[in-house]
Write a protein that binds this DNA or RNA. Structure first.
Lengths: 210, 210
DNA sequence: CCGGCTTTTGACCATTTGGTAAATCCACGA
DNA sequence: TCGTGGATTTACCAAATGGTCAAAAGCCGG
């Protein structure tokens, strides 16, 4: 059997799980800074502490690694949005979402940049996932937000553009970290960012009092 | 003379200006989609309608083209920020800046993505420019905004994070266009974006009435 | 401690890619 | 019109890169 990876026939051995994890970890490092085409199997192999042919023993090729990474990551990436609770208090729900999203930018900047690279370059390997995985979720949550607005529990706002703004502002701190490192004075960038972003969206979303 | 490009000794011939322009135009197309390492001289050559060696006749190499593009672009890119007028009405000035920035995302998405690619990947070829070109300008304008806040002419806001938010939200529409194309319903995305972004920052920045 | 599997490696390949050298083409002013 | 310098092409490299293959090495239940 050539690809123990994809065939779910047998349970993967301990070595397999360990090495696959190592490879994905290394690949995340490399892909997230070099982009897909910029990354090389040699880089990944070296970062993983394995030989290049050995990596190709575990994955069907460079693209397979990339796709595996993107898919695995998209799950956790949209999780916070999925958690938007239709039963909750609208403003609380959205602010919690925003905080969580910013946290993820801080904790998983590599994942964010992996994604950013893919999208900036036209999402060549991810468009299907965007259409069938992300779009329905965004449609659903946009409808929810629209409902909240209709009910007067949120200030009027275009739901999809709100979501874009949240993504843009939060992910910016991960994706453009190189720029931020240059422009921001030393200090609690992340704390200030949290305060700023939360305050901004609170003002945007708070329904008119009275 | 090998490099009529860099040596300012003689005025460039008509052919030179034409071909250099062509090359840069083609390179912008390619680099903005593929990133630096993803782009190939063959792609650029083909897009420019020139042969590869001919391209290397006009530029010292792949990197020289990229750097030329980045530098040329940075000028126009920060121009709107430079225009923030200390004498103007703060809210008007900032909203005008925001509108202009969004306009530029619409008119020059390739430039925006070229820049995004470079920064996401750690700004390997642009850090000096960021430090010596962009940082002083941001420092200056951040101080200006801080002054406006102190004078009570803007709602309290952390100036640098405000600037980041403006960049994030406006450039997002260019940089993540592939995603937006999937998620947004057909229609005037740009008009809605303008309304949304302007409204958002107006709420954020408007000083307390009274 | 053996036999059969999983895993790993060294050698190798074809293609791509950035770049070069020299020959050729061509525009244009004297 | 003709020579000359700028512009262009043809024919190449050498290195990098994704990937293959068969042999070697390790691992592990019996």
């Amino acid at each position: 059997m050539q690809r123990p990876a994809d065939t779910p026939a047998k349970k993967p051995s301990r070595i397999q799980t360990r090495n696959r994890r190592r490879i994905l970890e290394a690949a995340l490092d490399v892909f997230s800074v070099e982009g897909y085409r910029g990354a090389t199997l040699d880089q990944i192999a070296q970062a993983a502490g394995l030989s290049k042919p050995n990596i190709l023993y575990y994955f069907d090729g460079k693209e397979a690694i990339h796709v595996t990474l993107l898919n695995a990551m998209m799950e956790t990436w949209v999780e916070p949005l999925r958690r938007l609770d239709p039963e909750g208090e609208p403003l609380d729900e959205l602010l919690r979402y925003i905080r969580r999203k910013l946290e993820m930018s801080r904790e998983y900047p590599r994942e964010s940049r992996l994604f950013a690279n893919e999208i900036v370059q036209g999402a060549p390997r991810m468009r299907p996932h965007l259409e069938h995985g992300l779009k329905p979720l965004v449609d659903e949550k946009a409808a929810l937000i629209a409902r909240w607005v209709d009910e007067g529990r949120l200030a009027p706002v275009e739901p999809r553009h709100l979501i874009m703004s949240i993504w843009a502002t939060t992910q910016h701190y991960a994706d453009f970290e190189a720029q931020i490192a240059v422009l921001m004075p030393e200090g609690d960038v992340w704390d200030d960012a949290a305060a700023h972003v939360e305050g901004m969206f609170r003002k945007l979303l708070a329904p008119e009092a009275g």
